[in-house]
Amino acid sequence: TGYYDVLGVKPDASDNELKKAYRKMALKFHPDKNPDGAEQFKQISQAYEVLSDEKKRQIYDQ
Results as ranks from 00 to 15, higher is better:
4 Y>W: 03
51 L>K: 00
41 F>Y: 11
37 G>M: 11
13 A>W: 01
56 K>T: 11
27 L>Y: 09
29 F>K: 00
37 G>N: 15
4 Y>A: 00
39 E>Q: 08
48 Y>F: 10
49 E>T: 07
35 P>D: 04
49 E>I: 10
24 K>A: 12
33 K>H: 13
47 A>I: 07
9 V>D: 01
34 N>C: 11
32 D>W: 07
8 G>R: 03
12 D>G: 12
37 G>I: 06
55 K>D: 06
10 K>W: 06
13 A>R: 00
36 D>L: 11
22 Y>V: 01
27 L>P: 07
44 I>G: 02
23 R>P: 07
2 G>C: 15
15 D>F: 15
55 K>Y: 13
7 L>E: 02
20 K>M: 14
2 G>P: 08
52 S>C: 12
45 S>I: 14
14 S>N: 10
31 P>Q: 07
7 L>V: 00
40 Q>I: 15
54 E>Y: 13
2 G>A: 11
48 Y>R: 01
13 A>F: 08
58 Q>S: 11
4 Y>I: 00
35 P>I: 06
46 Q>L: 14
22 Y>W: 07
26 A>Y: 15
11 P>M: 10
34 N>M: 06
37 G>E: 09
61 D>G: 05
27 L>R: 13
28 K>D: 09
51 L>Q: 00
55 K>S: 11
15 D>S: 14
56 K>A: 11
42 K>L: 11
34 N>F: 08
8 G>N: 05
31 P>E: 06
14 S>Y: 00
23 R>F: 13
3 Y>C: 14
37 G>C: 14
17 E>Q: 08
4 Y>S: 01
30 H>I: 05
54 E>K: 15
61 D>H: 05
2 G>N: 15
37 G>V: 06
4 Y>M: 01
24 K>Y: 09
39 E>G: 04
2 G>W: 15
7 L>I: 01
11 P>D: 05
22 Y>M: 06
18 L>P: 01
47 A>T: 00
6 V>L: 15
31 P>K: 08
2 G>F: 15
10 K>L: 10
38 A>C: 10
15 D>Y: 15
9 V>A: 04
45 S>K: 15
43 Q>L: 15
43 Q>I: 14
28 K>M: 12
51 L>R: 00
46 Q>D: 13
54 E>N: 12
34 N>L: 05
22 Y>D: 05
1 T>S: 12
39 E>D: 12
33 K>V: 14
46 Q>K: 12
18 L>Q: 01
1 T>W: 15
58 Q>A: 13
34 N>T: 08
26 A>M: 13
33 K>G: 08
17 E>C: 09
35 P>Q: 06
21 A>I: 01
43 Q>E: 11
43 Q>N: 09
3 Y>D: 00
22 Y>T: 02
18 L>Y: 01
45 S>M: 14
51 L>V: 04
11 P>F: 10
18 L>F: 00
38 A>Q: 09
13 A>D: 02
29 F>W: 08
42 K>F: 11
57 R>K: 06
53 D>L: 03
21 A>G: 05
29 F>C: 07
24 K>D: 15
59 I>F: 09
44 I>Q: 00
56 K>E: 04
31 P>L: 07
62 Q>F: 07
16 N>A: 15
5 D>W: 07
41 F>E: 02
32 D>K: 08
21 A>P: 00
21 A>V: 03
35 P>V: 06
19 K>F: 12
